[in-house]
Design a protein around this nucleic acid. Structure first.
Length: 621
RNA sequence: GCGCCUGUAGCUCAGCUGGAUAGAGCGUCGGCCUCCGGAGCCGAAGGCCGGGGGUUCAAAUCCCCCCAGGCGCUCCA
């Protein structure tokens, strides 16, 4: 519909002498009113103070020879088009695999996941990674260049804490870590909670943590080595967890490398030169380099460099953002970190010998971070702008989403205390559901369902199917809520395979596969499809044809839930169609062929959409 | 105090850059396998769209006020 609307819009704009902005379309709530509505009479009439209804009539009378339009009818101020269904259907069917969204110029850098490498990933991290991954998939489906990065803060307090716990509290030197029976990141999950309790009451532990932190930042000594190993081990486990959900990356960037490369030093100079920051000589921030931020009419100083000369988190983020935008004059070296089964290569930045690569230098940088970081992201963007990089600042995009909390029911079932409606996830307190545990539980349930339905399959085959179902269930669950909505994570809902879920989409596509297979087995032949008038058919064709528009809107609004909802409603519409109109069992060859073609049209959209959501389709389920 | 977000069916949520009759899933109740896969389909019950005012031909949607809740605003990351 997107390509068609473009053509139609151009023609209308010529016929009515309207600017493209005044030619806006919408869909009637009911296809009996028309297939497409033109809203120009509202827009122009309102602006020029004309009678909307008579303007609509005037416009309608001038609209002639429109492509694929059979009739133009006005309904009050609405100008409705009834399309030539036979022509439109053929056009949609023949081009069903094309995506007609205009790709934008330049590279997109999508940074997501970014989990502190000191403990297991939890369901909150899953939301981040799934949104980031699906958004990157969408950009590449519409034909844009995408690079996915995962930034790892291997020099932060969180890593220092667990280094302290392992070395000082557990007496486990790095050589002993591989011998820990439990999965290492899960072990650290519990340990981190112990460490946090220790830190609260033990000043000497705090002192030691400071020393560890300093060593991590300087990159020297045994503490630093332990920190590096910890971060590396845990990050690798996170990668495994994400791979279970089909999430892959192109590059790992390590905070310690950013420090060594000296990106900050250069940025610090620039910030001073351009007067973006100034040294505060009085007040509570005396001795610090600060940036003046105005918000709600209040002037605030944001500390960028502490009075002891060290850079704050935002400071480093500004420097790193500059690198992503190609505004740094130095670059990392790179080497391959691992090769995915898909063949995709995951690179890592490195301090040792490595290749020169073309990472970064993006036209648009999407930072996928929860909305709590909104203020800091705003400062980073503002700093880039004040450095004189207006265009790059515009390309610095915060893909924000709300956090994940645990539902009362889920939290209580795991033995956490519940006082309100929901419980915030807290790594420090150990409150949360580990991503691996969730994946394991969903797989277990899926395997039970598969066994019930397909006892004839081998255990191995059943497990493989269960993995795909589990991944689809989790991914869909993480994407069905709008970014602005706090996800009250409920394990029972997430485990569900019925209704608005990932498995529902899979089931629909598996059913289509099955129909196709039966078609071959029975040797049913098909004719080239010819349209026959039927409102139910048309509704499905019309709905499937809006796919491109949905992708366009998702890219614009960075709102994956739109796609999830759309695909669900399309699948639902197909299932209604399927229940009412047999395909293979239809005796009339013309009718049968048409129904099959409609299925193919819907299938093409569902498949592409499922790919974007990261949902794989098993042969059977 | 300042900023961002949220309040829609019993529950979880769509719809919000104004448009035609406010939707979905779950749950509840009742139906549907002689037939392409019942993880499905059909039907029913269920709504002062937090409250009040305003703008408009038109408001769940935009503006203002109020109420309720979440998050952020550290020389933490």
């Amino acid at each position: 519909m997107l390509g068609f609307k473009r053509k139609l819009g151009e023609k209308i704009s010529r016929l009515l002498s309207l600017s493209p902005e005044d030619v806006r379309f919408d869909y009637p709530p009911n296809l009996s009113l028309g297939d497409l509505s033109l809203l120009s009479a509202f827009i122009v009439g309102k602006r020029e103070g004309k009678n909307l209804v008579s303007l609509a009539r005037e416009y309608a009378s001038k609209l002639e020879d429109l492509p694929m339009v059979e009739r133009v009818v006005t309904a009050g101020p609405f100008i409705n088009f009834k399309l030539k269904r036979d022509e439109f259907f053929l056009y949609a069917w023949e081009s069903r695999d094309e995506v007609k969204v205009f790709p934008r110029e330049g590279k997109n850098l999508v940074e997501h996941t970014n989990i502190n490498p000191n403990k297991a990933a939890h369901v909150g991290h899953l939301r981040n990674a799934v949104i980031g991954d699906s958004f990157s998939r969408l950009l590449s489906v519409v034909g844009e260049v995408v690079e996915v990065q995962n930034y790892i803060d291997d020099t932060g307090v969180q890593v220092a804490d667990v280094v302290y716990g392992l070395l000082k509290m557990k007496g486990l030197p790095p050589e002993a870590w591989d011998g820990i029976g439990e999965k290492f990141d899960h072990f650290c999950w519990d340990l981190y909670v112990e460490v946090e309790r220790e830190m609260e009451t033990n000043p000497s532990a705090q002192q030691e943590r400071k020393r560890i932190l300093k060593a991590l930042e300087e990159g020297e000594g045994s503490y630093s080595e332990a920190g590096r190993k910890l971060a590396h081990k845990i990050a690798s486990l996170h990668l495994q967890t994400m791979e279970n959900l089909g999430i892959e990356y192109d590059l790992l960037t390590w905070e310690s490398h950013i420090i060594s490369l000296g990106l900050w030093a250069r940025t610090f100079e620039l910030l001073r030169e351009k007067g973006v920051i100034r040294k505060a000589d009085k007040g509570p921030n005396a001795g610090c380099w600060v940036m003046d931020i105005e918000e709600g009419g209040q002037l605030r100083e944001k500390v960028i460099v502490r009075s002891n000369g060290t850079a704050t988190y935002v400071a480093k983020d500004i420097a790193y953002q500059m690198w992503k935008l190609g505004l740094q004059d130095r670059d990392f070296k790179y080497r391959v970190f691992k090769k995915y089964p898909s063949g995709r290569l995951l690179y890592t930045t490195t301090l040792e010998d490595g290749e020169d690569m073309d990472f970064g230098r993006a036209a648009r940088v999407y930072n996928v971070i929860d909305s709590r970081q909104g203020y800091l992201q705003k400062i980073v963007k503002e700093a880039v702008r004040r450095l004189g990089f207006e265009k790059e600042a515009e390309g610095s995009i915060h893909l924000a989403y709300e956090m994940v909390a645990l539902s009362k029911r889920s939290a209580a079932s795991m033995g956490f205390e519940v006082d309100g409606e929901a419980v915030s996830i807290s790594g420090r307190k150990g409150v949360g559901i580990k991503a691996d545990d969730l994946i394991g539980e969903v797989r277990k349930r899926a395997a039970q369902e598969v066994e019930k339905r397909h006892p004839e399959l081998s255990l191995e085959d059943r497990e493989a199917i269960a993995e795909k179902i589990a991944s689809a269930a989790i991914r869909y669950y993480m994407l069905k809520f709008t970014n602005n909505s706090v996800v009250i994570f409920d394990i029972e809902d997430a485990l569900s395979f019925e209704g608005e879920t990932g498995p529902y989409l899979q089931y629909t596509l598996v059913r289509m596969n099955s129909i196709r297979r039966k078609l071959r087995e029975r040797g049913v032949s098909l004719l080239s499809p010819r349209w026959r008038e039927n409102d139910d058919y048309w509704d499905l064709v019309h709905r499937a044809s809006r796919f491109d528009e949905v992708l366009d809107k998702v890219r614009e609004n960075m709102e994956l839930s739109l796609l999830a909802k759309y695909l669900f409603s399309l699948a639902q519409a197909f299932n209604v169609f399927y229940a009412k109109y047999p395909i293979l069992n239809e005796a009339d060859p013309g009718e049968r062929s048409l129904r099959f073609a409609i299925m193919e049209l819907v299938e093409a959209k569902l498949k592409k959409g499922a790919y974007i959501l990261g949902i794989e389709i098993p042969e059977r389920m």
